[in-house]
Nucleic acid binder design. Structure first.
Length: 372
DNA sequence: AAGCCGGGGGG
DNA sequence: CCCCCAGGCTT
């Protein structure tokens, strides 16, 4: 007698899920820049790895231009390993989670220098590399090397939580969801299966309004049967984000150049460039306090308005002060001058671009039709 | 196990 | 506007 596994599906049901999902993938797979055409040979591991690092916590639409830019500039792992870190950070600017870019560069150097430019072809060895965790190791092993690996990202967690009607809230449910994904992962075409699950999550099994009528797995979905699909996966209540405050100093120097400085290597926006500012703290800054933090004595003016930006775990409110100076010489620690038309060549995260844009707009308003 | 890390898109 | 999404590293 065949017995049904205590959790998961009977073997014949898993086989049917694989057939239906892979059939759906053959018809509906998204054509993405880093993806080999259906039926083609396996994709270049460098391209799979690069795309998977970029896709961590980041949508396909956002990644697209960054991936194309990296690939054009650094076509293989040796080229990327040879690049200066600052150029990698500059190319990464705007994509967020900047530790990914530092780990990407370190990983390229390990592969290029210690592994003769050849990526490990198995999950366990991939897992040892910087920036490669459980998800990415499994994804690269399956997609680039055709290995059977259990690939679980946020999309897969959602699909599986619904398919099996898992009521355990995330993140506690992670181990259970991975074990359930294992029960439906095929021995062959594991890479296609993983990409099919992620495509399904991105285009059909949507977070808020799943398109169950278009889903190839609808007849197998316990969440659909129970009417709870749209409410899964359950999550623990989110924490409230505090607000931090700072005053940023927008200093125009000789020939209109802007004063920028580099942030410390570790921590928030590590290694990226910034507009000099006070500390970022929980309470607002009084003028009398902020003035002690200016990078240079000058006629500082508080600009109208404010820049708001939200990070992963806090809101950020920045008041911008502007001044001009004719002194080109700066204290060593103050930073360096950057021409306005050279800003694209700097490793500037989005919040700093917002601050610079605010300064440009408000100072132009203060001095209309004049060179100041 | 929990906290630290950006940014974009949709309702 | 607020709400939601989503891996790896560190402690």
């Amino acid at each position: 007698m065949a017995s049904v596994a205590p959790s998961g599906f009977a073997a014949h049901t898993s086989a049917d899920i694989q057939v239906k999902l892979l059939g759906w993938y053959d018809r509906h797979a998204r054509r993405l820049p880093w993806r080999a055409p259906p039926g083609a040979a396996l994709q270049d591991p460098y391209r799979v790895w690069l795309s998977e690092i970029m896709l961590q916590q980041t949508t396909v639409a956002t990644v697209g231009p960054y991936y194309q830019g990296f690939l054009a500039r650094w076509p293989d792992v040796d080229a990327l390993a040879a690049a200066p870190l600052d150029q990698v950070l500059t190319a990464w600017a705007g994509l967020g989670y900047y530790a990914r870019a530092r780990n990407l560069h370190r990983c390229a150097q390990v592969v290029s220098e210690d592994l003769q430019g050849v990526f490990p072809d198995n999950e366990a060895d991939l897992l040892k590399l910087p920036g490669i965790g459980a998800y990415t190791a499994a994804a690269v092993a399956a997609i680039a090397f055709g290995r059977r690996a259990v690939v679980v990202d946020g999309n897969v967690e959602r699909v599986v939580a619904r398919l099996f009607a898992v009521e355990t809230p995330l993140p506690a449910a992670k181990a259970e969801l991975k074990a359930l994904t294992d029960t439906i992962t095929p021995g062959r075409r594991a890479g296609d299966f993983a990409q099919a699950m992620m495509d399904l999550g991105a285009t059909v099994c949507l977070p808020r309004q799943p398109k169950c009528l278009l889903c190839p797995l609808e007849t197998h979905c316990r969440g659909r049967a129970a009417g709870s699909a749209a409410d899964l996966p359950r999550r623990l209540p989110k924490k409230v984000k505090p607000t931090r405050h700072a005053v940023a100093f927008w200093l125009a120097g000789p020939e209109g150049a802007l004063l920028l400085r580099r942030r410390p290597e570790k921590g928030l926006l590590g290694g990226m460039m910034e507009v000099p500012s006070t500390d970022w703290r929980d309470s607002r800054w009084q003028e009398s306090e902020a003035v002690k933090a200016v990078p240079l004595a000058a006629d500082w003016q508080a600009l109208p308005g404010m820049v708001r930006h939200t990070f992963t775990h806090f809101h950020f409110e920045v008041t911008v002060w502007a001044a001009m100076t004719t002194r080109a010489r700066l204290p060593k620690t103050a930073g360096r001058w950057v021409a306005l038309d050279g800003l694209d060549g700097e490793a500037l995260p989005t919040v700093m671009r917002k601050i610079i844009d605010h300064g440009l707009k408000q100072t132009a308003d203060l001095r209309p039709a004049s060179d100041g």
